[in-house]
Design a protein around this nucleic acid. Structure first.
Length: 826
DNA sequence: TAATTCGCTAGACCGA
DNA sequence: TCGGTCTAGCGAA
């Protein structure tokens, strides 16, 4: 009698004074709700030794509100693995609202409480270990019925849904599938932009299976010319209705690009103005605060905002683009050029009905939806894995911070092991933690100059492997055993139990092993010619979470924050890397550089076999889960001297046998340097490393300087990009980018905090400061640039440090070798 | 409601 | 006008 379906969403509704869990699932192309009445909201209360019985009696008598229903329905004493002598009571309620009242009353009474702030639906998923995106097996109870749902403020009464009562449910493996629809609006332009201020002109729709395959595309508009690929509807009202119908066609996912901040809010406003409804799955799209951002939550159906996905991929280093607009992403991630159509052009194309312009607009509108859909198809497999690990919906995992992912994982696994979670820290505790930072990694000062034959070694997953090897966990810290103190004391003086596995290392070990297995499987399949994207996504999901655990332990707002654990981890890391350095030196290598987990060995008279032998020797002496690996051999590498003297850390360039260049930390990889400086630097590094020749780069730099002086360099090469991190008035030091913004704002331009700014240093007044001459790119004419600035403050600093290593000076670059006056070109 | 620390550099700011 | 200090941003791991 069991049934199977794929789990999409979990929520709750209040029904006859009882909070009930509702799960949105999909099976064989049909979506419906499951209803579980057997799970109740609860929290834990801590009592002293032998005091729980008395407290339990007291709580059972208490009333947590006006009605007679506002009482605890059950108080149980439960064993807790981590509360020591204290006794723990689990207090359950009929309704979430009663729990909310109760926790306030407990606070007033000074009753110690735990896990009181975990949302009910999230609690349900964690406790039952259900995995959104994966299968569930449930036992139906009674017939399918049509019921009204009351899912908070956005719900609409009078609409009935297919719903099945269930008696039990558990997770199961099921291949993922689900129908998705991506949509995108184009709106009419106005000088003063407001959400919903002007009509929506066009909608594009792309639907199909979320992981790709055959798709249905539509673009529709109204009151404009009918052209190929464009449907003409009666008016905006019909456009909205048609969009709504598409969104309600049995979708599991709805995909947007920035739908959290634009499309849904726009539709809502327009619908209000046109006096009609805009409902998805029978409810208003609901605006939810997510950190500093807004998110749009739909009832049941998972709203996937591809822009949020890209932001997360950017944060975790999976992609690296300067901007995250859909055009840049399309090009950088999929290698597809995408033309941008600006708001004014959109309106013009629509109003004029000009066939060419309209065709371009239709194409643009459709490609937005296609690209958003593609991003979802590409990255959802990975988020599904994170959803499985953390038991959170895809709506959550595509928007969560990495700390949230780790915390959800820990909550889930702690519950499984009977460990009560620590409370979130209070604000003053957060401040305390923040003021007391943890000492981090060791970075060895490099030997400046050009080096030949370098072997780069690094530790695989250094921090996770240390945490596992030394069993570093809040629950194993400074245990009572004398033996552990003797055997497993860290350089910090803290020690960790060697007898019982800690919560954190246990989880990490499982994930690390799993990841190695997946990686090997993926590699094997790839060798056989099959690029298995799901395998890759799985191991990448594990990588993200694995790498975030150390950061989480040192994160001041974490429930499981542990200064001792985080600090012990880095202390051991410093010890291991320094030991490796001395071992390498003893083995006859010269160690040129090292940062956190890496070692750069100059091979001198040694062979590759010697490096392999060295690796073997080191690995034999390391704990089992730790491993030093070979990153690669490089024929040349360069480190440069700092302005202040001494060699610069975190800045180097390597070239391998095949001539491939790896540039790290240099201006070339920084977005806050202009292109001409970056490209010149790259060419110089390339020449210096590939041929070891040094005369050519000097000639090359002189040519660049000459072009700059002659005003030949185009704007695009001179743009410097910087993020506006706060409101202009909040800066104490007004840098060039802030000055440029303030000038633009005076001209009436609207710029939000968090925008990427492109600015140029113009000719301006020679005597004035750099900030005075900074202007946003859009206000600068071709040729209007301060050549002096770009030569002295961009190109020369980028190349001088490299060429200095070969005996050249600034003077050699700016003139024929003879020193001339500073401003000789003016 | 935000993962961590280490490190480099530019350019404003400020007092002599 | 000079030089030291501070603010700000971004990258490495």
């Amino acid at each position: 009698m069991t049934q199977k379906a794929i789990l999409l969403d979990a929520a709750y509704s209040d029904e006859n004074e009882v909070s009930v869990i509702t799960l949105y699932v999909t099976s064989k192309g049909k979506n419906f709700w499951l209803k579980d009445k057997n799970f109740h909201p609860y929290l834990y209360v801590i009592a002293g030794k032998n005091e729980s019985e008395k407290l339990a009696e007291q709580i059972m008598k208490m009333s947590f509100g006006e009605g007679k229903e506002e009482k605890a329905i059950k108080v149980q004493k439960i064993p807790a693995a981590n509360e020591g002598e204290k006794e723990v009571l689990k207090v359950s309620f009929k309704r979430v609202s009663t729990l909310v009242n109760a926790r306030k009353i407990f606070s007033e009474l000074g009753v110690e409480k735990r896990e009181y702030d975990i949302p009910y639906a999230k609690r349900y998923l964690l406790d039952k270990r259900l995995e959104p995106g994966n299968g569930v097996e449930y036992v139906p109870e009674g017939e399918e019925e049509l019921l009204g749902l009351n899912d908070g403020e956005g719900a609409v009464s009078g609409i009935k849904y297919s719903s099945i009562k269930i008696s039990s449910i558990k997770p199961m493996e099921m291949p993922f599938e689900g129908k998705a629809t991506a949509f995108d609006f184009e709106t009419k332009f106005s000088q003063k932009f407001t959400i919903g201020g002007e009509p929506i002109l066009m909608t594009s729709i792309v639907s199909g299976d979320v992981l790709g395959g055959k798709q249905k595309n539509r673009v529709f508009s109204y009151e404009t010319k009918k052209i190929k690929g464009l449907e003409i509807l009666k008016d905006e009202k019909e456009l909205l209705r048609e969009t709504q119908d598409e969104l309600n066609a049995q979708n599991s996912f709805i995909i947007t690009y920035n739908g959290d901040n634009f499309d849904f809010a726009y539709a809502k406003e327009r619908a209000k103005k046109l006096k009609q409804e805009f409902l998805v799955n029978g409810a208003q799209p609901k605006s939810i605060r997510k950190g500093l951002d807004n998110a749009i939550k739909l009832s049941g159906i998972q709203h996937i905002d591809a822009y949020q996905i890209m932001k997360l991929m950017q944060r975790t280093g999976a992609v690296n683009t300067v901007k995250l607009d859909i055009e840049t992403v399309s090009e950088k991630v999929f290698g597809e050029e995408k033309e941008k159509v600006y708001p004014k052009e959109i309106t013009e194309a629509w109003e004029s009905g000009d066939e060419k312009k309209l065709t371009r607009l239709v194409d643009y509108n459709l490609k937005d939806s296609i690209t958003a859909f593609k991003i979802a198809s590409e990255f959802l497999p990975m988020f599904i894995e994170i959803s499985k690990l953390t038991s959170q919906t895809l709506f959550e995992t595509t928007r969560n911070s990495t700390s949230q992912m780790v915390e959800d994982l820990l909550l889930k696994e702690a519950h499984f092991r009977g460990i009560i979670a620590p409370n979130k820290p209070k604000e003053n505790e957060v401040t305390q933690r923040t003021m007391n930072p943890i000492k981090g990694a060791f970075v060895k000062e490099p030997i400046a100059g050009l080096h030949e034959n370098i072997a780069v070694l690094d530790f695989a997953s250094l921090y996770p492997s240390i945490i596992i090897s030394h069993n570093i966990s809040p629950d194993t810290l400074n245990c009572k055993h004398k033996e552990c103190k003797e055997k497993n004391t860290t350089p910090d003086g803290t020690w960790f139990c060697t007898k019982e596995k800690g919560l954190v290392p246990e989880i990490l070990e499982k994930m690390l092993k799993q990841r190695l297995k997946l990686k090997a499987e993926y590699k094997k399949k790839k060798k056989e010619g099959h690029d298995d994207k799901v395998l890759f996504a799985k191991q990448w999901a594990l990588k993200i979470v694995l790498n975030s655990v150390y950061g989480y332990l040192g994160y001041p707002r974490a429930r499981w924050y542990s200064r001792e654990c985080a600090s012990a981890t880095t202390a051991l890391a410093r010890q291991y890397i320094q030991e490796t350095i001395s071992k390498a030196e003893k083995s006859g290598f010269e160690v040129v550089y090292g940062d956190t987990d890496s070692n750069f060995l100059k091979m001198l008279d040694k062979s590759r076999a010697d490096v392999e032998k060295f690796l073997e020797k080191v690995n034999a002496e390391l704990p089992e889960t730790m491993e030093l690996e070979l990153d690669g051999f490089y024929k040349r590498g360069i480190f440069v001297t700092k302005k202040e003297g001494g060699a610069a850390k975190k800045k180097y360039a390597l070239m391998d046998e095949k001539g491939n260049l790896k540039i790290v930390g240099f201006e070339y990889v920084r977005r806050d340097w202009c292109n001409i400086a970056k490209e010149t630097q790259k060419r110089v590094i390339e020449m210096v490393l590939s041929e070891g020749k040094t005369k050519e780069p000097v000639e090359y730099v002189r040519k660049v300087i000459k072009d700059l002086k002659e005003g030949k360099v185009p704007k695009s090469e001179l743009v410097v990009m910087t993020l506006l991190q706060r409101k202009p008035k909040d800066y104490t030091a007004i840098g060039p980018h802030v000055a440029a913004v303030m000038k633009a704002q005076e001209r009436g331009k609207k710029i939000d905090v968090g925008s990427m700014l492109s600015f140029i240093i113009t000719k301006g007044n020679t005597k004035s400061s750099i900030s005075d001459k900074a202007e946003l790119e859009e206000y600068v004419n071709e040729g209007d640039y301060d050549a002096d600035y770009y030569i002295e403050n961009q190109v020369l600093p980028a190349v001088i440090k490299i060429l200095q290593e070969f005996g050249y000076s600034r003077e050699d670059l700016i003139s024929g070798g003879k020193q001339t006056g500073l401003n000789s070109w003016n």
